[in-house]
Nucleic acid binder design. Structure first.
Length: 644
RNA sequence: GCUCGCAUAGCUCAGGCGGUAGAGCACUCCCUUGGUAAGGGAGAGGUCCCCGGUUCAAUUCCGGGUGUGAGCACCA
């Protein structure tokens, strides 16, 4: 006699065991139709799931996040079924839900083409019309293996065989298609209203590059056509913000074949770069970092000593000169230890915070490069803190204060914290790792913010915290990091004299707030859609004359604004004002200063913001004051974080 | 690094089943001096990514390379 409690607290009694579908039907016809799955005492189940005793039950529809997930998962099955109808020789492997969609990996004799994708999507439509029931069945491991062996699905057999334990396994059947799956799934193929296959690409079986490359088809599915369109619009918006596109159209930087993965910075892009770097310099000066600079070319033996050559030789550029092998530095830390090693250090010198904006080169795999986001030549706001074990926690806490404050200045309020702990391949004793991980955990807990544990992802020399920020598109971008290193200082002979007159090896903390400038600027460009806030804008204002008559005055205004330290230019071309407004608006210059006879007469400029807002005429002094305030806000104001 | 796609004027892109190519914008010159998102006219501009092969002939077809895009793998 099941007694069912619904989410609103109401209860319903049934005489016999009842399915989720029946519960939904008892509430209303519309709900019965909309039901995609159910939740019984917190567990997601199929609508065919039968409830026999007292339970809390919720009907899951496309309005629930879980409903959309079920829909996407089922859509992956729908796609697999369509693929096997069209390409009977294709073998199925796995097809999980991912953010905003799903994919399914197939093994097939040839790669799928974009035309195949269209055909598959069409076939999926046919399957929807066929309204096939989706049934859950349970098979024993032996029966399941026999079934898929018979079908020639060798990958599925491998998956089934590798599932630990010996309980029965659940399968979902729709028409002639059957797949191993935990479920739940939608009750029928008619439930799909809005889906689209988005791309096809290779992907390694089990994510291992030694294995066969499978054909991965990506798709997306939504509860309604409207949601699907909103999603597609979001993709378009992201494409418009692509920093590679904006870098070209705003004339910030370029790449060319002769220097793959290395940016050529143009005046406007370099201005942004310099502003960001000078800002970090000021912030680090104020927090007791000593800025240094070390060579870009260092004898290979140093990298062998540090342990980097053993692990990253293939990713390092090297140069032979005069029978010596040098590496172009892929990182600054071994050089920082050389600076530390000059002169005998006392515990009184610790913590010692060294910082460097050092140009580093890494031979990144060709397929991994992506505009400014992943390059072979980059500069980090790099720093290394030499300290004692007792100082780690305080140093981490200090660093985080700096980091949060910097991110806020750049307009990022959402920071995601992750702690990566000891990997399998590592150096140092477990006791040392225990302590290092504890220091980082304590520092994280002290922030009061939520953080995520990522076991096994630490560096070989120590655990690390990674700081990611959310951009205005909701994308998560990893930027900052702090890593504890008990290993490298010792390998490179760093030591200090402790209070008890013994020689001790310092702990080194590797840390960066922004990460690489290249990447961070890429993130800024996309976050602001190229419309940089006034403090970062390479050109803060441009003065536009209406006719030749005002040229002289415009030049004078330019001079006086430049003297106040603003980045200002003029456009005195023989063009109509509308044309100039359009051009410089597209160049996303924050302020357009229009000058006609009226302005000359009154000693003013007519101020127009790049979003189109007309601030009317202002005296030069008033405009300076206005711009100063805007610049002083950095990225903090609501107004300037919204791309206009 | 792997799979698949792409590479044509400064930019964005057409095009050609093999006979050395075209638009819009930008650029130069001329007219126009016009008050808040494109005024008009004329002109100049190309090793069709590179190296081989097939062919009377290759920008086009084939092979290799480089770069680049999506995804995978990698990321000190």
């Amino acid at each position: 006699m099941p007694q069912i409690t619904l989410p609103d607290g109401s209860t319903r009694s049934f005489d016999n065991a009842v399915t989720i579908a029946e519960v939904a039907a008892s509430i209303g016809e519309g709900l019965a139709k909309a039901a995609l799955a159910g939740r019984v005492n917190g567990v997601l189940v199929d609508t065919s799931h039968s409830v026999e005793i007292e339970a809390e039950v919720a009907i899951i529809t496309e309005r629930d996040a879980e409903g959309i997930e079920v829909l996407r998962h089922s859509c992956a099955h729908l796609m697999a079924q369509a693929v096997q109808r069209l390409f009977p020789k294709a073998q199925v492997t796995i097809g999980p839900v991912i953010e905003d969609g799903f994919f399914y990996d197939f093994s097939y004799e040839r790669p799928f083409t974009p035309e195949d994708l269209i055909a598959i999507e069409k076939e999926m439509g046919v399957l929807v019309k066929e309204n096939l029931r989706v049934d859950r069945t349970v098979l024993s491991r032996e029966d399941a293996i026999a079934l898929f062996q018979e079908k020639g699905e060798t990958y599925k057999v491998e998956i089934i065989s590798s599932i630990p334990g010996d309980e029965d396994l659940s399968f979902y059947r729709q028409g002639d298609f059957i797949d191993l799956c935990r479920g739940p799934h939608v009750p029928s193929t008619s439930k799909f209203k809005a889906f689209k296959l988005t791309s096809v690409a290779g992907a390694y079986w089990r994510g291992d590059s030694n294995n066969e490359m499978l054909q991965r088809v990506y798709g997306t599915a939504w509860g309604s056509k409207k949601d699907l369109n909103l999603y597609l619009q979001r993709l378009e918006e992201a494409e418009k913000r692509d920093h590679r596109k904006l870098g070209k159209s705003l004339n910030l930087f370029h790449f060319q074949e002769e220097a793959p993965g290395m940016a050529f910075w143009h005046p406007k892009g370099w201005t942004i770069y310099q502003i960001v770097q000078r800002y970090m310099q000021v912030r680090q000066d104020a927090t007791n970092y000593k800025e240094i600079n070390t060579p870009q070319l260092v004898d290979y033996s140093l990298w062998e000593k540090s342990g980097h050559a053993a692990k990253f030789a293939d990713e390092m550029f090297s140069v032979e000169s005069d029978n010596r092998m040098y590496a172009i530095k892929p990182m600054n830390c071994p050089c920082h230890i050389q600076v530390f090693n000059q002169g005998l250090k006392s515990y009184r010198d610790l913590p010692l915070r060294l910082a460097e904006f050092g140009s580093c080169h890494r031979y990144e795999p060709s397929g991994s490069m992506h505009g400014l986001m992943r390059v072979r030549s980059f500069v980090q706001d790099d720093g290394h803190i030499f300290c004692t074990e007792d100082q780690i926690q305080a140093e981490v806490a200090d660093f985080m204060d700096l980091l949060f404050s910097v991110y806020t200045d750049f307009g990022f309020d959402d920071v995601i914290l992750r702690l990566s702990t000891r990997p399998e391949k590592r150096v140092g004793s477990d006791e040392i790792w225990d302590e290092a991980e504890k220091s980082l955990k304590d520092a994280l807990n002290a922030t009061g913010l939520p953080w995520e544990l990522v076991p096994g992802e630490g560096a070989f020399y120590g655990p690390k915290i990674e700081y990611s920020l959310k951009d205005c598109m909701g994308r998560i971008q990893q930027c900052g990091t702090i890593q504890v290193d008990f290993f490298t200082p010792g390998r490179l002979g760093a030591h200090y004299i402790a209070e008890d007159n013994s020689r001790k090896t310092p702990v080194m903390l590797h840390r960066a707030v922004l990460g690489s400038f290249e990447r961070f600027i890429g993130i800024l460009i996309e976050h602001y859609a190229g419309a940089m806030p006034a403090w970062l804008a390479p050109e803060q204002a441009i003065i536009l004359n209406i006719t030749d008559k005002q040229s002289q005055y415009c030049t004078e205004v330019e001079e006086s604004l430049k003297n106040k330290g603003f980045r200002v230019t003029t456009d005195l071309r023989n063009e109509k004002i509308g044309f100039k407004i359009r051009e410089h608006t597209l160049q996303k210059i924050p302020y357009l200063l229009v000058v006609g006879d009226k302005e000359v007469e009154s000693g003013s400029v007519a101020v127009r913001k790049r979003g189109g807002e007309d601030l009317g005429p202002m005296t030069i002094d008033d405009f300076c004051e206005y711009l100063s305030q805007d610049v002083a806000r950095l990225g903090r104001s609501e107004e300037s974080t919204v791309a206009d």
